[in-house]
Simulated assay, not measured.
Amino acid sequence: MTEDPIVQITGVQELARDLVVIPDRRVPLVPNIGLVGGTHSVLVVETGLGPANAETVLEFTAAYAKGRRLYLTSTHFHPEHAFGAQTFAGEATYLLNRAQATDLAMKGPGYLEMFKTLGEPIARRLEGVELATPDLVYDDAHDLDLGGRVVRLRPTGRAHSKGDQVITVPDAGVMFTGDLVEAGQFSIFPWFPPYDTDVSGTRWIAVMERLAAESPRVVVPGHGDVGGPRLLEDVRDYLELLRDETWARRDSAMSEETMVEEITALMIERHPEWTGRDWIEKGVGCLCAEH
């Protein structure tokens, strides 16, 4: 049976003054959820999968905020990150980059139906989902003043999705990456031709190079343990190796099936402790198309 992707308020990590993460506890389809506070406002990063999980997050947030104004954002439109936003309606200002807002409107309904097929616990979590419309949409950059603390929201351009957004807290050196970075897991390539081919391995590498150059003190991945800047370098190095090994075999006219077998074996040898091995094949397929 598929594990219930339930958000639990346990093991909350304080990363800096007035900045905490509700950890995913290594449960599939539970994201790391952030709360960033200033003197007059609190920003919530990610909602959890569906309204009930979002209610848990909102209840914790309300107690944490102690009357401060609430904002909500998500790193990208995928269901466990954004499909609880309706719960915050009337309680928080929902803020997104334009590409993500477009993803949510155009692709959200299809992803909702697809995720409902992934198991009974997931379908149950998605009952009653209504895709929310953001209150504020920005294009190139948004600096959110929480009172004595400014949070930077920046779209990265197409990588894991078209609408990826990174949230950084400069005074604390903290970066929320969403699924651009996973800790202890192979990169998730949502490569499902012909239905979804928005992920780009080559653009993802370029994004990781830019993020690594920022050298944050703390990196909060979409899934997995919070870490340091090494997480950014690990993902960049993995994606570069995946590209190089795929393209070298593509040039030799090897069958894709043999390519997948060889590259999967190589990657598991390099990272035997990482989970999500099925995503290697999706990454090879994506990079073959980008060759």
Results as ranks from 00 to 15, higher is better:
251 D>M: 07
260 V>P: 11
194 P>E: 03
221 P>H: 05
264 T>H: 08
266 L>G: 06
211 L>I: 08
182 E>V: 13
239 L>G: 07
175 M>C: 05
273 E>P: 07
224 G>R: 03
210 R>W: 12
207 V>C: 05
200 S>N: 07
226 V>R: 00
260 V>F: 14
227 G>K: 06
198 D>M: 09
227 G>C: 14
270 R>N: 11
198 D>Q: 13
262 E>V: 01
271 H>V: 02
170 P>K: 12
168 T>P: 02
216 P>W: 03
178 G>I: 01
266 L>I: 06
238 Y>S: 00
250 R>W: 09
266 L>C: 08
259 M>N: 02
193 P>H: 15
175 M>E: 01
191 W>L: 13
222 G>W: 03
187 S>M: 09
184 G>E: 12
263 I>R: 04
270 R>T: 08
181 V>Y: 12
168 T>Y: 01
229 P>Y: 01
242 L>E: 09
224 G>I: 05
169 V>I: 14
260 V>C: 11
255 S>M: 06
186 F>I: 06
236 R>C: 08
273 E>M: 10
209 E>Q: 11
228 G>E: 12
232 L>D: 08
184 G>S: 12
192 F>G: 05
193 P>A: 13
249 R>D: 03
251 D>P: 00
248 A>V: 08
231 L>G: 04
216 P>G: 09
248 A>Y: 09
215 S>P: 04
264 T>W: 10
246 T>E: 11
241 L>A: 15
205 I>W: 07
175 M>T: 01
186 F>L: 14
224 G>F: 02
214 E>G: 07
230 R>L: 10
169 V>Y: 05
254 M>G: 02
183 A>N: 11
181 V>I: 15
205 I>T: 14
264 T>M: 07
168 T>E: 14
203 R>W: 09
225 D>I: 07
172 A>M: 06
181 V>F: 11
273 E>H: 10
256 E>F: 04
270 R>V: 12
268 I>C: 09
200 S>I: 00
214 E>M: 15
181 V>S: 10
167 I>N: 01
255 S>Q: 08
225 D>L: 12
231 L>D: 05
208 M>Y: 00
212 A>M: 13
193 P>S: 15
232 L>F: 08
218 V>E: 02
250 R>L: 14
221 P>C: 03
177 T>E: 08
270 R>H: 13
225 D>P: 13
173 G>H: 10
220 V>I: 09
196 D>L: 00
182 E>M: 10
255 S>C: 06
236 R>W: 03
178 G>H: 02
255 S>V: 10
209 E>N: 03
240 E>K: 09
185 Q>R: 14
225 D>N: 14
223 H>S: 11
256 E>G: 01
219 V>P: 15
265 A>K: 07
242 L>W: 11
266 L>M: 12
227 G>H: 08
232 L>C: 05
189 F>A: 15
262 E>W: 02
252 S>G: 03
270 R>S: 13
235 V>P: 00
248 A>I: 07
181 V>A: 11
211 L>M: 05
239 L>I: 01
206 A>Q: 13
167 I>V: 15
